[in-house]
């Protein structure tokens, strides 16, 4: 579930070192910084891409840690030294701000998650999601609706479609969206709700992009944490996420962005 850090860290550090050498003699030196970023598991792949682009631009180094948003929140409340938090929801960054663990006013929406109904079998999920009504399946995988935003959105969509009661006995719950994906990819669950970004990466099987009218938008918010308050690289990365370039990368992975 949690992917290892990119192997290119040393190379990036060397690049950063080169940057220091190149700019070191200037009157206002651009100092290379190392900043730790906690990322919600669903955003793993785009976060790596964004971090690489940011590092190339600035020479700063980002150390990415991936986990479920709920776990990251629990870790931060216990003093984890992350500077930036990219959550899979809006509630947790707000909660951290209220607890005084995030910098007030630093919270913004970096991506809007989109839900897809997916099966590893080609042709299993039709273009209108009718398969949920006809119900020829034994297991429907979702992320934990208590702790994972995509799980909560899946339950909302099932209720909006009026099939929740019918499929409830068939629900199997992954700890996060990546595990729900695993249940489906391994064939143990015939279908399930995952992030559209995951479906776009794989491109196999069959999928239905759930209309956004069926669930509350999955606002994924970022926050500058107290540990990163005086960290220019952390602020620079958050600013970078709001540039047109970064927003185009994010949309390329199947997320929406706020206007």
């Amino acid at each position: 579930m949690t992917l290892p850090r990119p192997p290119s860290r040393r190379q990036l550090a060397m690049l950063a070192a080169l940057g220091i050498v190149a700019f070191g003699l200037r009157p206002a030196p651009a100092r290379a910084e190392e900043t730790s970023v906690a990322v919600a598991a669903d955003f793993t792949v785009p976060a790596k891409r964004l971090a690489a682009a940011f590092e190339q631009k600035t020479g700063d180094t980002l150390v990415l840690s991936f986990a479920a948003s709920g776990q990251i929140l629990a870790q931060i409340t216990q003093g984890a030294p992350y500077a930036v938090f990219l959550s899979a929801d809006a509630a947790r960054p707000r909660k951290l701000a209220a607890m005084g663990l995030a910098v007030p006013g630093s919270v913004f929406t970096y991506a809007v998650g989109r839900l897809a109904l997916w099966s590893a079998q080609p042709g299993f999920v039709d273009a209108q999601g009718q398969v949920l009504q006809t119900g020829h399946f034994t297991h429907l995988a979702i992320a934990n609706p208590q702790s994972a935003p995509y799980g909560a959105a899946a339950v909302q969509a099932l209720k909006a479609l009026g099939v929740y009661a019918a499929v409830a006995p068939k629900l199997v719950t992954g700890e996060n969206i990546a595990q729900a994906y695993q249940f489906i990819a391994s064939g143990n669950a015939e279908l399930g709700f995952v992030a559209l970004s995951e479906v776009l990466q794989d491109k196999s099987g069959s999928a239905w992009v759930v209309p956004q009218s069926l669930y509350q938008p999955i606002m994924q918010d970022a926050a500058l944490l107290k540990a990163g308050e005086d960290d220019p690289a952390a602020r620079a990365f958050l600013a970078y996420l709001q540039t047109p370039e970064a927003r185009a990368i994010i949309r390329g992975y199947g997320y929406g962005t706020t206007p």
Partner: peptide, 26 residues
Amino acid sequence: VLMLGGDIPGKTEVLSIVIFNDVETL
């Protein structure tokens, strides 16, 4: 259990999973 169980109350939701979910949801 986390990898295999699918967190179904009464069937596969054992105590360690309940504890984990409680921690996750604060």
